[in-house]
């Protein structure tokens, strides 16, 4: 006996109830459960759909789908950081390197001004606010997409949460720990380190909040063969 379309939908709902909210991970588990339920029915045809489903689910062990989800998240995060690194590396190529060096030099010059103690934190907070606005825009866009399609993709979530969270916190930590309490008599090496860290934070922010989200559709299509099928 084969599962009906309605029962397949019920299996999707069942995985959602067990904390699997991403369509890509759900799909594989739904197919697995469906195959197993059909096999169970061959051996015990008297069982109801729910009884067979519960027998199948028990085979995943006491943690249910959690082991599957954890490993998948770990792999996706690794993949995300590899992509970020790839984009950051690309950044350090001509002519982008000229932009980078100019930015670095501007930050360095800024630190030499007598009013750097106002300018530098001001600049930092401006960048933070810009990134915050980008974050809100992206979240709104994703929420609209979810409402229309009803599907969440794990990799898309990672692009959003990692991209926004890490970048903003990264910038915050650079500001918190690397910027000096006093800008008077700043040594050359300190100025160089602060300028380099700020430049890097800006590049990572730009890559995570603008470049990668812009390429998100392409990355999702490349990563998920099923993305276009549904």
């Amino acid at each position: 006996m084969k599962l009906t379309t309605l029962q397949i939908e019920q299996l999707y709902k069942f995985t959602r109830q067990h904390y699997m909210e991403h369509y890509d991970v759900q799909t594989e588990l739904v197919d697995h459960l469906a195959n197993d339920i059909e096999q169970i029915w061959i051996e015990k045809p008297a069982l109801t759909f729910k009884q067979a489903r519960d027998i199948s689910f028990k085979k995943f062990g006491i943690f249910g789908f959690m082991d599957v989800l954890e490993e998948k998240q770990k792999q996706m995060n690794k993949k995300y950081f590899r992509i970020i690194l790839g984009f950051v590396k690309q950044w350090f190529s001509i002519p982008k390197i000229i932009v980078t060096l100019t930015m670095f030099y501007c930050f360095y010059l800024l630190l030499q001004f007598s009013f750097a103690q106002y300018l530098f934190p001001g600049l930092f907070f401006t960048i933070l606010i810009i990134e915050f606005i980008l974050l809100l825009k992206r979240r709104k866009k994703l929420n609209t997409k979810f409402k229309t399609t009803g599907k969440k993709w794990l990799f898309e979530d990672i692009i959003e949460t990692q991209g926004n969270g890490n970048v903003i916190f990264g910038l915050f930590y650079v500001f918190q720990f690397l910027t000096p309490n006093s800008y008077d008599n700043l040594s050359t090496s300190s100025s160089l380190i602060i300028s380099a860290a700020t430049t890097l934070a800006v590049i990572i922010g730009y890559v995570s909040l603008i470049v990668i989200p812009k390429k998100a559709e392409y990355l999702l299509e490349k990563h998920y063969p099923e993305y276009k099928l549904v």
Binding site: T4, T27, D67, E71, L229, V230
Partner: peptide, 30 residues
């Protein structure tokens, strides 16, 4: 099941496996 899928996903992430998705009946299969 709890060991198979994490292993498959790990091998996929390491670039040793490739995935293909096909519609089989009323469901998708990876």
């Amino acid at each position: 099941e709890g060991a198979l899928y994490p292993a498959l996903h790990k091998l996929e992430a390491e670039g040793l496996l490739d995935v293909e998705v096909a519609k089989v009946g009323n469901r998708l299969r990876k």
